[in-house]
Design a protein around this nucleic acid. Structure first.
Length: 516
RNA sequence: GCCCUCGUAGCUCAGUAGGAUAGAGCGCUGGAUUCCUAAUCCGGAGGCCGUGGGUUCGAAUCCCGCCGUGGGCACCA
């Protein structure tokens, strides 16, 4: 949390200089290394309030810094209104000595969070798209837990309704040698289910096994059927009715979701008396809000994004307006994945069974590469997943780049036949050593940013950059043929970096091999 | 038609609580191996950040229009 630490020093400095209290300012890493290690733009924000130019304020802050306690080892340099900060080697070294990548300060307000993801229908095997939500969801869970939240992860099993009836009928038809019903399921996997006592449960169980192969395990598999069984749907509708958000029209019962920003009202009970999928979802979300406590996060595919406004409406009607806030309810809409083979997109259809399953992909390229590729892209852009690239063991495939950095460090210990040093003193630090240390120290800041923005891909990019710095130091700063004190210094830095890579990969549930 | 998403190097993508000269990998190109795994490193070329306005001391980032991509617009699930 070095950036938080720096920000706190700046807050103190501003208070000491002008007697004003400010919130934690942004701490940037300047692109130009001549500007120092960190920079802050507080002077711009204070300019209006203090009726002074940013340049003058930056200058004054830097002047005052010499008289303030707690900033020893930091050189303050004003430039163009920015305050640039340069940390001396001793300070960085002290920071590193007390730094441990697995220790992360908890957030100020920990939440109880219910995270729902994947929730694929149990009518066919999982594909790469489900894999993407599975990976992002599982990374998100670990991230949120890492910063102090309590997270319950859940897979919603749509084991009731028309599609399930059609699916069961399709399996039965194939078993009995009869034609599959109109709009039914024809895929090869359907044949494999004819002997299953319960094809739906067999399919769900297959999902569980597939997900376990890529390290995705749910705290709960929530059955839609149980909502029907205990009358939860009728209960949810009556809550909406009591809130006077329900009316009758055309023989059906409607939820006035337009009162909550949706663009049209939605049917709850059809004119034939059956509940809609949406009505069942009302029951599910009511149940989730009761269990979640503080916050709900749903991860859905792009084909559901039109569904979001009505769910937001329903959540507010059932749970109260506080559930409209982004700190209580998030829907992450993940864009689609196009699978490429030899540069050509593969078309998929679940109904006819023309598809490459997630299992087949994991068979081919393994869990580590699958997870890394799916985690590295931000969830709101559609991506291409190239099977050939994912199989390559080169720089084109960044998972090996990161793992190799870890393995290389381990190889040095083997060569020297020693264990990693637990402490060391330092002499002068070269640029490669210094940059690597500075990057490691920001690991926790990055974890917090990734958790806050629900963006696990930030961790992946942090690790790629970390690996780059390790490889850079490896090339420029020899160890075996170096005098003992410097050797120990370098080993100490590399061990911190190794632990950081290990911690980062663990967060992504990717292995950190000691040899490759 | 309406709503949502995205548009950054030739390709695949980072970077968006506004910051100082916009980044990486691949591809192209020039180098590095008496030395810890070359699965690596160092250098070069390559950009009006879709487009036109606006807000601001400052915009890839925020707001509006337009163009383009993908998705959604059921008493389906």
């Amino acid at each position: 949390m070095i950036r938080v630490w720096i920000a706190a020093r700046i807050v103190d400095l501003v208070a000491a200089t002008y007697g004003v209290a400010i919130p934690y300012p942004a701490i940037d890493m300047p692109k130009n290394p001549e500007y120092g290690d960190f920079a802050t733009n507080v002077a711009f924000g204070l300019a209006q309030q203090l009726r002074k130019s940013p340049m003058a304020i930056a200058q004054e802050l830097c002047d005052t810094s010499k008289m303030v306690a707690g900033v020893e080892g930091i050189e303050f340099v004003p430039l163009n209104g920015f305050v640039n900060l340069k940390l001396n080697d001793a300070l960085i070294w002290r920071q590193l000595q007390s730094w441990n990548p697995t220790t992360v300060l908890p957030v100020a307000v920990p939440q109880r969070i219910l995270l729902e993801y994947v929730s694929a229908n149990p009518t066919g095997p999982l594909h790469i798209g489900h894999g993407r939500w599975a990976v992002i969801g599982s990374c998100l869970k670990d991230l949120l837990v890492q910063v102090g939240h309590q997270v319950h992860s859940e897979f919603y099993v749509n084991d009731a309704g028309n599609q399930i009836g059609l699916f069961r009928a399709s399996v039965a038809a194939i078993r009995d040698g009869e034609p599959v019903p109109e709009g039914g399921y024809l895929g090869a996997y359907v044949k494999d289910l004819v002997d299953a006592p319960n094809p739906v449960e067999a399919m769900r169980s297959a999902h569980e096994s597939t997900l376990a192969r890529i390290g995705v395990v749910f705290d709960q598999w929530f059955s839609e059927q149980t909502l029907h069984d205990r009358g939860a749907v009728a209960e949810a509708i009556s809550v909406l009715r009591d809130a006077e958000t329900v009316y009758q029209a055309d023989g059906a019962e409607w939820f006035r979701s337009t009162d909550f920003g949706d663009d049209k009202d939605r049917v709850l009970t059809k004119s034939d008396g059956a509940y809609t999928y949406f009505a069942v979802d009302c029951a599910y979300h009511a149940d989730k809000m009761a269990r979640a406590g503080d916050r709900m996060i749903n991860i859905w595919g792009a084909d559901h994004h039109g569904y979001v406004p009505r769910v937001r409406a329903m959540v507010q009607a059932l749970g109260g307006s506080e559930w409209a806030s982004a700190s209580r309810f998030n829907v992450i809409i993940g864009q689609l994945v196009t699978l490429l083979k030899n540069g050509e997109p593969i078309r998929m259809s679940k109904r006819t069974g023309e598809m490459v399953t997630l299992d087949e992909i994991v068979d081919e390229i393994g869990s580590d590469a699958t997870r890394f590729f799916l985690a590295m892209k931000s969830s709101d852009s559609s991506i291409e997943f190239d099977l050939e690239v994912a199989k390559k063991k080169s720089n084109e495939n960044p998972v090996f780049y990161v793992q190799y950095a870890h393995a290389r460090i381990c190889a040095i210990y083997r060569k020297l036949e020693i264990l990693a040093p637990t402490d060391a003193t330092h002499e002068i630090l070269n640029t490669a050593e210094r940059n690597l240390m500075m990057w490691c120290l920001q690991f926790q800041d990055e974890i917090h940013a990734a958790a806050e923005n629900l963006a696990p891909n930030r961790v992946v990019f942090f690790l790629i950059e970390l690996a780059r710095l390790v490889h850079g130091m490896y090339e420029s700063s020899p160890i075996l043929k170096t005098e003992p004190a410097l050797q120990r210094q370098r080993l100490y830095i590399l061990e911190k970096a190794r632990a950081c890579i290990e911690a980062g990969l663990q967060l992504l549930r990717i292995s950190a091999p000691i040899a490759m």
